[in-house]
């Protein structure tokens, strides 16, 4: 992927966000009401600013389209995927099974498949970390985290 492609993609995304802000703000009125500016006014102009600046970035990127700078190469992309995809898995697990179970599974899996540790070490570290978070948050600071079926069985809500 070239830097040019990345610049264009990012500028297009921010452009789309800018337009969305403009359209969204129009719903609430951008003019002058009895008591002052309508609620949409400020976001409306902010949206215009984002749109215009994004268009400018697009133009600047276009001027340098032949620079041929690499944005990410294959090796880097693989590294990002190897790190990023498990994060998505962790989020999905946390939303369904709760944080503590998700933490243990995620840690054990990454240590095993990326770190190449022995299963026993992976499970030990995973369980200890999970227990540590449980003690600090639920017991010590009394900050409740997302919990799943396992905690329900153990009687924690």
């Amino acid at each position: 992927m070239t830097r040019f492609a990345a610049e264009v993609a990012t500028a297009l995304v921010t452009l789309a966000l800018g337009l969305a802000i403009v359209v969204g703000a129009r719903e609430y009125g951008t003019g002058w009401a009895a008591g002052g500016p309508e609620p949409g006014t400020f976001p409306f102009y902010v949206g215009l600013l984002v749109t215009a600046a994004s268009a400018g970035n697009l133009l600047l990127a276009w001027r340098k389209r032949h620079a041929g700078i690499v944005f990410v190469n294959a090796v880097q992309l693989r590294r990002i995927a190897a790190f990023g995809l498990p994060i998505l898995g962790f989020v999905a697990l946390a939303l369904t099974l709760g944080f503590y179970v998700a933490t243990a599974i995620y840690l054990a899996a990454v240590m095993r498949f990326q770190g190449g540790f022995r299963w026993s070490a992976c499970i030990a570290v995973a369980l200890c970390t999970s227990a540590f978070f449980f003690l600090v948050l639920e017991v010590w600071f009394r900050v409740p985290l997302l919990k799943g079926p396992l905690e329900a069985i153990l009687g924690y809500r």
């Binding site: 962790f90 944080f99 840690l107 240590m111 570290v125």
Partner: peptide, 17 residues
Amino acid sequence: AIIGPMIVVVCFIGAYT
């Protein structure tokens, strides 16, 4: 491979709290 995922977990727990 140990520290990275731990940082990730801390980040998400922090965001949730």
